[in-house]
Design a protein around this nucleic acid. Structure first.
Lengths: 212, 212
DNA sequence: CTAATAGTGTCTCTCAGACACTATTAC
DNA sequence: GTAATAGTGTCTGAGAGACACTATTAG
């Protein structure tokens, strides 16, 4: 049905609050693929970092702000996953949440607030609020799909790396071992050999590669 | 930065308007894969059907309502694609738009409002407002990916159909010819033969299949 | 009979997976 | 020398693409 008398202006409609919630994933040397959680500010338990969208702010900026505030993490490249819009999902009222995923090297998480944040393996995320378990599942599926197609698309590794280093990152993301020779042949086409050798450690020195 | 004195409540933040915009796709006998457009109500040109989210409404319901109102189309199964949140994207103010895609059989579009709607091939969508060209691209990519993996996942065909009928639908979606024998072998594993024959038309009668 | 469509046998090529071999280092 | 790691040759099996053959109908 159209409005009866004249056209409703934008201001006449009640508006939902819009929030962002982010699954910040990293490859932890101990835990493997892990997700950052923050202590809930006014309640018990843990949650994904999130915030309400401020006026005149785009979603990606809200994600960055929430992580700067809650965990002192900067320079993220968040990707949208899904809008969660169930009516009863937030007891504070009518809140839509735009779920995001961001992948950062573990070193960049070193400055995070120790008492109010934790890193948890994605397979055992613990008891979480709202739709946060579903967000983690979407985030993991997204990152795994992207890492199947390209060498370290989220730049967990710096400029040059050996195929062993690359494979260990991909194994952590995939959550399973990958075959050495098959992995090399799949990735080599998307890499550029530098000619330089890694030299450190035992065994034959490995060649260093760069992304194409 | 946290708020200085006390905790801001939900009501203290200005909120964006939230809209939905939907690319309704169909396979038209003439145009192939086509998208439904509606005349802009208070301006020139054409746009994807959309509406503002009403209070206490979920996104999928807003999509259904906008299509019932603007084109008398019912029973959609919309899927979310992306949130468009650029600040200058809507001159009516601060509006987030959640893009959706829905696929419907061409017959279901027969009741659409003739003067205020049109069906346009997805390759030549014409000049559109806002981000609507981008929404169509996302919608087409989404539907093509799903039709590569499964036989007619959006049920453009009714219960039983021949492999020829199925292939013609998939060719329209893909926008290119598909090889008859390869297509059959790929899809047959995901279908159940009924034993019945189609009988109509020239040539050897084709067997009828159902989805698994 | 011919034309048209359905269904299938089969060849080739590519590629993932797997195994094994050689190459180069530390010790 | 042994242990460890890097790099590669090669076999196998699955599957996509392509071609061609047979099968069944209308006319």
């Amino acid at each position: 049905m159209k409005q009866g008398a004249g056209r409703k202006s934008l201001q006449d409609y009640p508006r939902p609050s819009v929030a962002v919630d982010t699954a910040v994933l990293t490859v932890d040397p101990d835990a493997g693929l892990a997700v950052l959680q923050v202590r809930r500010p006014n309640a018990r338990g843990w949650a994904l970092p999130g915030t309400f969208l401020h006026q005149g702010e785009i979603l990606a900026d809200a994600v960055q702000r929430s992580l700067a505030d809650k965990a002192d993490i900067h320079g993220l490249d968040p990707r949208q996953l899904h809008v969660f819009d169930a009516l009863g999902r937030d007891d504070r009222g009518w809140v839509l949440s735009v779920a995001h995923v961001a992948v950062v090297p573990a070193e960049r998480l070193s400055t995070r607030f120790a008492g109010t944040t934790r890193l948890v393996p994605v397979d055992t995320p613990g008891r979480l609020v709202y739709d946060h378990a579903a967000i983690i599942e979407l985030a993991v599926a997204d990152v795994r799909a992207r890492y199947e197609a390209a060498p370290d698309p989220d730049r967990l590794l710096a400029g040059e790396f050996t195929l062993r280093e690359l494979r260990l990152v991909h194994e952590a993301v995939a959550g399973r071992d990958l075959q050495r020779d098959t992995f090399r042949r799949a990735m080599e086409a998307q890499l550029k050999a530098t000619g330089a050798l890694a030299g450190r450690g035992r065994g034959r020195p490995a060649e260093l590669f760069r992304r194409v």
